[in-house]
Each structure stands twice: as structure tokens, then as C-alpha cells.
Nucleic acid binder design. Sequence first.
DNA 1: TCTCCTCGAGATCT
DNA 2: CTCGAGGAGA
Length: 322
Amino acid sequence: MDIRISLGFGNNENSIAQREFKGKSLLKELDDYVVLDLETTGLDPDYDDIIEMAAIKVENRNIVDQFQSLVNPGYEIDDFITDLTGITNEMLKDAPDVKNVLPQFLSFIGDSVIVAHNANFDINFLYDACGCLKPSTYFKNDFVDTMRLSRRLFVEERHHRLSDLSERFGIKGVVEHRALSDVIKTNQCYDYMKSYAKNSGILFESLYPLHKSGVRASDITATTSEFDETTAIFGKIFVFTGALQRMVRKDAMQLVVNMGGKCGDGVTKDTNYLVLGNNDYCSSIKDGKSSKQKKAEKYKASGRDIEIISENVFYEMLSENG
DNA sequence: TCTCCTCGAGATCT
DNA sequence: CTCGAGGAGA
């Protein structure tokens, strides 16, 4: 049974910015960086501790230095971790503790950009460990996450574990789950993805998310130029609110535009139809009506040419040809 | 149009 | 954590 004491700061709903000085996740091709990996007693930085740290320094694409040390967590580790990593309590018995190893590790890393697989895992452990040093420091290094990189580069692949990447890229090596061997594998994966991107004419910079907001009406253009002018869609302006059941909003907008209709992002005096989707998930809507619906109702009450229709009615309009 | 927010789904680390 | 879907307000 584990009993936790709230210290009044840190991990609760009041602390908005956890690890506020943490570095940024970058998508970059680098020639100079430090690859690192940690082995820990578990997955949660709040309750688990580092038992091994390893890193290599890469300059001009060559490995020029390496660091490896076990870390005594101050208590016995369980069998699961020993089975996973091969690290035993016997091995940790005489290892230095984190206060001794971390400063050396930090000086090895310096200001380098970090490369790591699922980098947030290692960065968070290090960030918290640095906060416990005396004097405490902030682990601010920016980082490149090879898992994120793989997800952006190979969107069609479902899994992006280090083992998946190694297999996919034909990287052989010891299966042992030790920090230094994982560091080497991660570096090889990074190298592979850099050359893959180069050969494919892909810049890592271009892999950042495309848009942070929804589909814009201006993004949708007709894929045809011949319209049936007698349909109920032609020449009308449609606006959508909420999530549609049968298709994503983008596709619905495309159908409208392809029939000679138009779409708007918000309800205006020119809007002819507001199509209601499901907005149950939206916590900011308390009375079941979105701001678009309220506006549409107002326009309708004042005699505008606007109809508020359900998703099903919308599909009926699409299918009935004039 | 632009910027900032919430939410849920999915996956990975030991 | 990251991403995509959507909404609100200026």
C-alpha cells in the first residue's frame, strides 16, 4: 500500500505549468547532439527512480564520447525490473547515488540538444531529479524525440517502439534492455531516419503539425466545375456546428462545394443553412446550443433566409436531385 | 482571420 | 505526451 503526502505544490490541479522550464520538442536533422537513455524502477517520475544513466556525444555525425553509470536508488528494486533490464540489486549495491552521478551526467550533456526515444520519459525523470539536487537546477535542454519523428515520418505504421524501429530499419544488436545499448540503437534509428528523409526529399521541419484548428471554409475548393443548378444545394451557403456522425466536416463541406454550394466558417447574414452535428462533448456549451445555433435562431426570427437543419435532413438534400 | 482553449484517442517509456 | 477535431472571442 502506498501512502502519499501532498506537499502543497507540484502535481495537483492548481499547478498549471508543470516543469515550466522544460525544453522544446524539436523535429530537426542535427549533426551534433547527445543521445541518452535511462533505466528506472518504473514508469512514473513521481514514484520511481533512476537506476542507470547512459549517453553518447555525437559531433559532426561521429560518436566522440560516452557516459554510463548505474545509480543506487536507495532501496531494493523488484524482479520485474531485473527481468526487464538485467540489472540486479547486487549490481546496484555499490553504485553511487543520484546526487553523485547526476552532476557528472549533466556536465557530460552540457547544452547539447538531446536525442532520445520517447524523449519525454527520460527528460521528465531528469528534470525532476535536477530539482532535487542541491542547489537545484532546471533541465532545460531542447530535445529530438525519435518516436515522434517516426510517427511523423511513417504515418501509416501503427507502432513506433524502439524495437519496432530497429526491426524496420534493419538494425541489429543486443536485445538487452540496458541504457547504453538502447542509446546506440536510438542513434542508429536517428541516423536512418535522417538519411531516409534526405533521400525522400523530406525536411524534418516540414513534419510539424499542419494546422492547429479546424477546417476552414476557404480551404475547400470544388473538384468539379459542372453543377446541377436545380438542386437545393446550389448557390446556398452552409455552415456546420458540432461533429457529424456520418462523416468528418471536411468531407461534408467538400460535397456542398462540389454541388455548387458554398461554406462559411461562422453564421452570417448570408448563411442559408446551419447543419447541426453533435456537440455533447463540448464542455463550453452548457445549454445544448452552440453560439452558431443561437446566432442562426436570431437571424431566423428576424426573417432572414436561414434554416437550421439536422444532419439527416442535410443528407436528404444532398441526395435529392432536381 | 487569428490566437488560444478543451477534449478524447492512441501509444510509449521502465 | 502529441495530434486532430472543434469552439470562442477579438
